[in-house]
Amino acid sequence: MDIYDVLLRDFPFLLKGLGVAIVLLAALLVIGFVLGMGICLVQLYGPRSRLVQWPLVLYERIFRGVPIIIMLFIFFYGISGVWDISAFGAAVLAMGLRSAAYQSQIFRSAFQSVPAGQMMAARAMGMSKIMAIRHIVFPQAARHAIGPWTNEFSSEIKETSLAYVIGVVELTRQAHYIITSTQGNVLTVFAVVALLYFILNRTGNSLLYALERKLAVPGFEK
């Protein structure tokens, strides 16, 4: 059998691996979004007490300063010591928490780039702080955030491949299985895998650009 027959035969496995990568990506982005937004809001509008702010700074420092491979191992071995967690579960958790550290910073600078006068004007019109954040500051911050968020999305797609190291059967590991089982042409298999990531990345980016254009408002183009 030459490599093309192998690829044809095993392509469903690659697609399955791609599916796992996409689910992992979606899960980690959602966790990162919710938690990252929470962190950002506490940092900007929460109590100024060091007891609250310091742990958040530490959290960001740690998750941004340690390679994801190490985090994957720490979460996988750390949690499985006390609780039976799947490699996939550990990957979602480690990558989601890490993405939160990046997303919180994206959101924070987006919120900070909304001029203070916007909040002031909203409050002067009788809006409560929460209403002003929801109706005035947030919609503007979202427009500032969407570009950097697209970058974060891109790098997370590629980093899902690293879940490979703790045995998550995503795209890269499926490729490895095919290679070891067939002795086939490794080059072609990896080229196909690279292409799949590339397409996924491009598709995601185009959707986000489309969203950015849809939300575009004069005065916000950079």
Binding site: K158, E159, A175, L187, A194, Y197
Partner: peptide, 22 residues
């Protein structure tokens, strides 16, 4: 575009495991 669009892990495998086939 190519290098920013694909994972470093795949790039490394490609070079270390793939290129020997050539």
């Amino acid at each position: 575009e190519l290098f920013r669009g694909t994972p470093m892990l795949v790039q490394m495998f490609f070079i270390y495991l793939g290129l020997p086939h050539l």
